[in-house]
Design a protein around this nucleic acid. Structure first.
Lengths: 234, 234
DNA sequence: ACAAAAGTGTTACACTTACACCCATGT
DNA sequence: ACATGGGTGTAAGTGTAACACTTTTGT
């Protein structure tokens, strides 16, 4: 028989939640970081975080945090893991339930971010973070990588309409790998989930010749995924 | 600036840990379950679990639990996730940091298990469990599946020496999929990580003709994995 | 003129899948 | 005798990876 009996002294732990927010500017993956105020680690960079009360659901708090930062909570939010190392927070035993989400940078959430003192960092130029937030960020990157490989989640980082160059860069950043342009295009077009638009645009400020715009066929994808299909790239 | 300030009322959470223990009897995957004593859920089946004190490391407690149950803690133990649903435990807010491990059933840990009142269940014949332990078990099965696909972790479930039949059954159970015998053998032998023994044995009690024994070449695998190689089956 | 990305096919190789029969042994 | 897994090869198809040049446009 297994005993799992708690005494009052064992109810002395607190909960925090962090949300790793990923964005994509058309060429590079970004992550949102902010500066911590108050002790400990005053002024250090951290991942967006919040305290969770004993009677609060961690996902609810994470969503609220997201709404406060970005103005909406309609983003794809996914639980990562609990981080429970003994000395991760000098103020006491705190368990961090971490999430990540993907946002579209073309919807203007910038003003709000500046008011809240958050900034975007390129994923491979992130500063050293307080607490165990570097570990959490690394964990989130791995999760994003896995998801992008197996599902069309990367499209939630792109604007509604995007060029092949944008799409390829997104895959290259998320998977830390370069692809052959011809092979890449053939492979993603084979899925029949990209709709070619009649419009063109320039993929980046450096680009001279405009390129075709595509959008992701959400409806078709939903139908196919009911039958077990998924949008895989690896 | 981000404020993450805790008040004393927020330090009122407790920590538990559970370990999902997987085994393999040569033909089927098993999981270890025990009966709960004391309130709540007296007599219900649960996954091996323990309270974690505020000053204890969850991994340490999980290892201790594993040693108490199986007599040794030298098994492959891996953190799964934190489970923090508001009402997962009726006694208060309890966060469960869950782990899984793989054990070899040919090492006789059976006596000890009986004393502790644990039993092995076939993975597809598990009873309904107390708390959110069914959710945790499902999570563990998914993780095992993923790991078995990408790494030779399945070998830690098999005896030192095993037959092709055993190996194939292990993959079939872990991945919930049947494989063609000829294709399976060709594929795993191609890795050159199986050493053919000069011995033979019967793969199961039903088998009549004895079959060759193989062992996994741990040394070679360690060398290769330094170079980024891994033992993949999918 | 020049720079920069847009756009486009073919070939070789590797891997996956489907498939069927005889063999050795224990009961 | 018979039941059970042990053991073996081939061929078709699918997917992946490597590879280079012309076109269009903005500066």
């Amino acid at each position: 028989m297994i005993r799992v009996d708690f005494t009052p002294e064992q109810f002395k732990v607190a909960i925090a939640t962090s949300v790793i927010v990923f964005g994509f500017d058309g060429e590079n993956l970004k992550v949102l970081l902010g500066k911590k105020s108050g002790n400990p680690f005053e002024g250090a960079w951290i991942v967006p975080s919040s305290v969770v009360n004993v009677d609060e659901d961690t996902t609810d708090v994470a969503r609220r945090l997201l709404k406060k930062i970005t103005g909406t909570d309609s983003w794809h939010l996914e639980k990562l893991n609990g981080f429970a190392d003994l000395y991760r927070n000098p103020q006491g035993r705190v368990i961090n339930m971490a999430y990540y989400c993907t946002v579209r940078l073309d919807l203007n959430i910038e003003d709000r971010l500046e008011k809240e003192n958050y900034s975007w960092f390129n994923l491979n130029e992130t500063p050293s973070l307080a607490f165990d937030h570097n570990e959490i960020l690394d964990y989130a990157r791995e999760r994003l990588k896995r998801r992008v490989k197996r599902r069309p989640i990367g499209f939630s980082l792109l604007p509604k309409e995007f060029t092949m160059y944008n799409l390829q860069r997104m895959y290259e950043c998320a998977l830390s790998k370069n692809f052959d342009k011809r092979n890449f295009r053939r492979k993603v077009l084979k899925s029949n989930l990209l709709i070619e638009m009649d419009k063109k645009t320039r993929s980046s400020s450096r680009a001279k010749r405009p390129s075709k715009l595509y959008k992701f066929d959400e409806k078709k994808y939903r139908t196919l995924s009911l039958k077990g299909y998924d949008f895989v790239y690896q």
